[in-house]
Design a protein around this nucleic acid. Structure first.
Lengths: 190, 190, 190, 190
DNA sequence: GATGAATGAGCTTTCATTCAT
DNA sequence: TATGAATGAAAGCTCATTCAT
């Protein structure tokens, strides 16, 4: 099936985009990686940019789907937030290459595709802000600016692609614990 | 003096790099922006990459210098952290273009220059972690993993280049207040 | 087969390099000569320098191979020297363009490639010196400094690319006769 | 006096042209070597090409002048030839850089200047051929093709710039002896 | 005499994409 | 499906030369 080859190409592209960057990766590089000629690649991809788009789209889609799963379950706002942070970090770290490409390279997309990604990113942000909002309504949280606060939390989480190394001592779970405690309790000792 | 023209070039480059990205900005674009021929530009810059390096280096240098000023003054750990967050955000937002180029484009640098930037970024991180560490020693903070916690805080702060728009309603100061409260007190209502 | 086009390119390049010199010949010139776009040329060559290297290498290789053929046959030292001179001159004159490029343009190669050519040139020189050496041992020749003498003979032969014109009255064979007599008998009348 | 600076520039240019080649030497290189700005150089030289021309012209002129001095004296043909070979080699080796530039780089000159150099080279050749011719008339030499024979002798002599190293064991005088003996007596033992 | 800014043409090379086979 | 030749635009950079100061 062609989906096989298509997948192989996407995987190779993700790895190359992560290593060298989208612009610095040539179509030839990708072709080499999957053992095809440059021309043959175009049986599977529409364009280099579209390939990046597929990768980025797939990545942000997964983030959104996971969040929706979390939101679908009955839980407190705190519970949902903790789950969101945990899931977000695990997903980021387990798919570090893809996540890196999503956050670092999507800017290289043309205006249209970029807006699609941004739209999905915004949607995710709004859902997180909603958690904060509803948690504030129930008295669990004390949040005056849900959107800014959500941006702070997501910024902290998304930044991991820039510093996480698989060789480090902490697991994604442990990082999630640290992050959750930080955002829920703050730094101050009581 | 040539520093005049050099500065003009750097400013134009920052603006273009921010708008189109470093790779998508041609030397021709920069030359056009300052009213010079492509070739004439090379009186002022060593290479396009070096121009990016100068910009990125200057930017991260300012962050470090500001932090060192803060650390030089007598203050509590909490006071230092609050100042750091405030100054970091103000600086990021006041020089949004430069900051964007620093965090988004420095990856396009070659290995050597990239390591220089990374080294200075790491130094900054360590100083922030030190604040958390000493605050924990004095009993002000309750931080078990200073480095990870510092990465979370800095991730949140550095992510602003991705969402801040000058047209928004909040000032840098107000954002700093929100961030400070979030990191010091946490989300939970007491 | 691509070797066809590659050969066509090499031939065009030799002609151009001979006429205008390597540095003064642009890749555009070569592309025009074979009816390709500049960019298309790079399907067949690695670089302009590599193209020169191929040409020079091929040329010096032929000289060496021809000499080895001569040396493989049973003959007196005198016979071998005469054959070497004859073959060397015929080859130089029959492939005047290539020979010109070899001796005049190889200097434009980078250090590495240049050393390869020089190495092969040295090998050739040593083989000629060996003829002189063994001829002296057999009593045929009276040579005190075989290497210098070989350099004199080869210098005389290689210089032909600088003065030979196909429009001249003498054939390569006749020139070879003159050279052989000069080197064997000397100028002096007895 | 400006002639001082002009000379300094010529000397620097010779050295650079010999080392890197004429085309690969930039006007900047020359300016750096004499401690001037690129623009200032043009107070002393008309153009880069003219600078090369001056150097090459001066070099070939010296060869011609020396030969005319030899011819002016009363001597046998053999004596004149021996002196010519000796002087030619000494001059070549004592001014190896200049000689190298003359024979290797003059090709980079435009048509006009190149013809001037070639004209002087031809004149030199003719004078040498005349020695052979008159020596044959007097019965000293046995030369059927004076021009070709002169080309052989001069080729051998001029080739030295390609192999002579000051670190070698032989002096110019010794090389002259070897060459003279070779051309007068030939290789054959009697 | 010296500077250094500016020119503008030119260079080699890369690259995403197309298309006939 | 696969190839690989061909495109053509664009890129970063160099350079000899000029000229106002």
């Amino acid at each position: 099936m062609s989906s096989n080859k298509q997948n192989e190409i996407a995987l190779a592209a993700v790895k190359l985009f992560e290593q060298k960057g989208y612009r610095a990766t040539s179509v030839q590089d990708i072709a080499d990686a999957v053992g095809l000629q440059k021309g043959s690649l175009y049986h599977y991809i529409a364009s280099k940019e579209d390939l990046l788009m597929q990768i980025a789209h797939q990545a942000i889609l997964q983030f959104n789907e996971q969040l929706e799963e979390i939101l679908a379950k009955e839980d407190t706002a705190r519970g949902k937030l903790e789950q969101m942070i945990r899931t977000h970090l695990i997903m980021s770290i387990d798919n570090l290459e893809t996540t890196t490409v999503l956050w670092r390279e999507a800017f290289s997309l043309g205006e249209g595709p970029q807006e699609v990604i941004q739209g999905m990113t915004d949607k995710y942000l709004n859902l997180v802000a909603d958690i904060l909002r509803s948690g504030t309504e129930t008295g669990e949280f004390n949040v005056t600016h849900p959107r800014i606060t959500a941006l702070a939390i997501l910024g902290a989480c998304n930044w991991v692609y820039r510093w996480y190394h698989p060789s480090g001592t902490l697991t994604a779970e442990e990082i999630a614990d640290i992050f959750s405690k930080l955002f829920l309790d703050g730094l101050l000792a009581h």
